[in-house]
Amino acid sequence: MEPNTHPFILPQREILMLKLEKLTKVYPTGDKALTDVTLEIPSGQVVALIGPSGAGKSTLIRCINRLVSPTSGKAILDGTDLTALGAGGLRRERRRMGMIFQEYALVERLTVMENVLSGRLGYVGFWRSYFRKFPQKDVDEAFRLLDRVGLLAMADKRADELSGGQRQRVGIARALIQDPALLLVDEPTASLDPKTSRQIMRLICELCQERDLAAIINIHDVALAQMFVQRVIGLRFGVVQFDGPPEGLTPEVLTTIYGEEDWKETIQKVDEEDLQDDAS
């Protein structure tokens, strides 16, 4: 595969996929994790969410699929207000949001295939899923996705036998088999080495392009974010500090997001690394 220095240019549509309106989360301890986050993401756009640890990145994506319940504000997916849903409605909407986790969060003692198929749980009744009798089209799709992420031969291996990069590929397949409209990606590369990190980011962005998926990717590696996405949102103390194209991430902007530091050098160094990567 050709190494890529430029962000993917995805088709910009006017269809609005996700809209957050003044989303706020206050934890019972009194910590304000998010304050009045308002943003719109059109269909097919891949957005990187950057910010220091504790900025509220994880909370933000968990408030969208309501693994964490927001305190106030709205999250509207394709016209449906997620914050107002009851248990059944929430389950139906969750099927449309695939999630990829930092520590992969595979069910370690299940096989790769079972992990991928678990992405279909929202579509299948309890007993069918209990006896692993998934519809043939789900099984076929699981095989296709495993082939796409390069793990077809691993299908019957137990998840805990896989390496970190492989596990994250299974995590991606599990999210995609849901046939989602939106991907929520939480620090996909935090536990991976730099090379695997790039491969995983590239895979996620390619798949988003293939399937015209919108995605929010939490990431703390600014350089990696700049390489792959066409829009960056910077979060600090739960407040949006920056929202724009990756070229707009000047040292001044990074200072407002991360605090005082010699950013110029960091960015330059990253660029050099990038060039070396291309040269090789």
């Binding site: 099984v139 076929d140 095989f143």
Partner: peptide, 12 residues
């Protein structure tokens, strides 16, 4: 992949 698509899958 061609061999597997359409074939049944069971938990080992």
């Amino acid at each position: 992949l061609e061999d597997l698509v359409g074939s049944k899958w069971q938990k080992p």
